[in-house]
Design a protein around this nucleic acid. Structure first.
Lengths: 124, 124
DNA sequence: AAAATTAATCGTATATTTGCGATACAAAAT
DNA sequence: ATTTTGTATCGCAAATATACGATTAATTTT
């Protein structure tokens, strides 16, 4: 990659992609679900239920934190994480709305000949 | 990376992460938005409005296609793409619901001492 | 004071993603 | 039949992401 072209897109588009990217790994989805269930959780508890090493989990936590999705506080030797509700409430509505707009239309009838290689076709 | 641990997570979690990952780049969000506006679109038209080369756009189209989000048909020399409505309607409701569950709770009051390095804190 | 606990970070290996020019291939136009 | 057009794919380079063991630093516990 000569140079990163991500910033060549509108901020709004970048913002959506950024959230999606942060959620683009099963470990991070799993971490979020643990926090949903338990409200808050110390790092070690998350590591326990995860098929990954402490170092790797810590990395995923950092990624979620940098995306603003979770927040963490140090409590003595331990670190307590939780969902960053304040931030989530500001971005989720727009994010969800974008998905609703996806649900509400696509390809009516159109002329078709061959199908392109891969799977998943059938327009309309 | 010694080995890929993604498959060590539940299918449901993997499914969410897979969709998110496919949406995790501004170019792919932009492509989807073009298809939303125009209903269908030949590859060349997409390339025109994108700050990327034809080869790169083609790659992103392939990624979206493999994720099932769009579908493409060859029409003569051209390739016509559109949103894969059939697939989207099967996965989006669950995906959207997952986000709603995120919106509806997080960290009540909790004891807190120091804040961890990065930005984005403030629990509760 | 020493040992144990917890979690962030470093260093490293490997895999994947991103980006592009060049090429290949099919269909359309000449 | 040849040239042009449109796009998928190849090959490559560079950047990022994933994963982990080892280390570090801070705090408790002993």
């Amino acid at each position: 990659m000569a140079i990163n072209k991500s910033t060549a897109f509108p901020e709004r588009v970048q913002a959506i992609a950024k959230i999606a990217k942060a959620l683009g790994h099963p470990a991070r989805i799993a971490i979020i679900e643990v926090l949903l269930q338990r409200q808050q959780c110390i790092c070690g508890e998350i590591v326990e239920v995860m098929p990954l090493s402490q170092a790797t989990v810590s990395q995923h936590l950092k990624a979620l934190k940098e995306a603003g999705i979770i927040s963490g506080e140090i409590e003595g030797v331990k670190s307590c994480y939780c969902l960053n509700y304040a931030y989530l409430t500001t971005i989720l509505p727009g994010f969800i709305q974008w998905f609703h707009s996806l649900q509400n239309q696509c390809c009516p009838g159109q002329p078709v000949k061959k199908t392109i290689d891969h799977e998943n076709n059938a327009c309309g």
